[in-house]
């Protein structure tokens, strides 16, 4: 009988659910928003429907991400560092360093034997995160995808000197008023973020292969800027948005397998598929 495992990754911007057996059988991505307490079970229901499964078919559920404590039906909560490490290691076995550019933080993770052995995080400042990109893209009147593509057409090197998101936005608006090309500004923004990320991850002594994941990995211009800064080619995760959720599901699978090998029962939450409340 096939065993299914679910990974629920509640990030600051997106909620991601995957259901896996030997491979991913269902995936759903939804915006987290302020109601993410209520969202986890809805996204899970949607993923179950896609997979044609019921909740009772799931052998183990692992929740991760900033909202992981708001998933009462999860059997276990595991940090996003461990889940990203496990997810990327399964997707790109040669990975030794992971750079996760999320909505409101950025992480660098060092891998050994597929597990996180060191990490750094920026959770103090929006600069160097997806939020910085969103703010600037809005100021430029572009979508994130458009900004990434447009930056590849840049002809001139532009520096954005402010690292504070608010002041950088002002600086971009001022340069627009001066007539600086939008493509050049987009490059300047990517370089500014890449500089912040580089300053953080260099603490880890970055080793190849380096895999970029998270929403930021979808921005080609940013990945190029980061490659230049690091002086290394980067690999983009085949599942940039789902690396954490896949890792969560796989860690759930590991938990069940380890318990079976040791002949001990698996501890489960036994909570029904329901939304979180302040009292759950």
């Amino acid at each position: 009988m096939t065993e299914y495992f679910a990974g629920v990754d509640i990030g600051s911007t997106m909620t991601k659910v995957v259901i896996m057996a030997d491979a991913v059988v269902a995936r759903v991505v939804g915006a987290s928003g302020p109601e993410h307490r209520r969202l986890a079970n809805r996204v899970m229901e949607s993923a179950l429907a896609d997979a044609g499964l019921g909740f009772s078919d799931i052998a183990y559920v692992v929740a991760t991400g900033y909202g992981r404590i708001n998933v009462p039906f999860a059997d276990r909560q595991i940090t996003e560092i461990s889940c990203h490490a496990r997810g990327v290691a399964s997707l790109v076995p040669a990975a030794r360093t992971v750079i996760d550019i999320g909505g409101q933080d950025c992480k660098g993770i060092k891998l050994k034997d597929g597990r996180a052995v060191d990490f750094v995080m920026n959770d103090k400042c929006a600069a160097g995160t997806g939020r910085f990109l969103e703010v600037i893209a809005e100021a430029l009147g572009l979508s994130l995808e458009e900004m990434g593509e447009l930056s590849l057409q840049s002809q001139h090197d532009i520096e954005i000197s402010n690292t504070c998101t608010v002041f950088a936005e002002q600086e971009v608006v001022a340069k627009l008023a001066e007539g600086v090309a939008v493509a050049d500004l987009a490059v300047g923004v990517h370089k500014a973020i890449a500089t912040r990320i580089h300053g953080m991850v260099r603490r880890l002594k970055v080793e190849r292969e380096v895999v970029v994941t998270g929403g930021g990995a979808l921005n080609t211009g940013l990945v190029r800027a980061l490659e230049t800064k690091l002086g290394l080619p980067l690999l983009v995760s085949p599942e940039p948005l789902l690396s954490g959720a896949i890792g969560a599901a796989l860690l759930g699978k590991d938990t069940v397998r380890d318990a079976a090998e040791k002949g001990i029962p698996v501890t489960r939450s036994r909570q029904p598929l329901k939304e979180a409340t302040f009292f759950s």
Partner: peptide
């Protein structure tokens, strides 16, 4: 969250 992640890495290193 950082402390949790650090505990995970300690566990990983001990396991290795």
């Amino acid at each position: 969250a950082r402390i949790d992640a650090f505990i995970d890495t300690l566990e990983a290193v001990k396991s290795r």
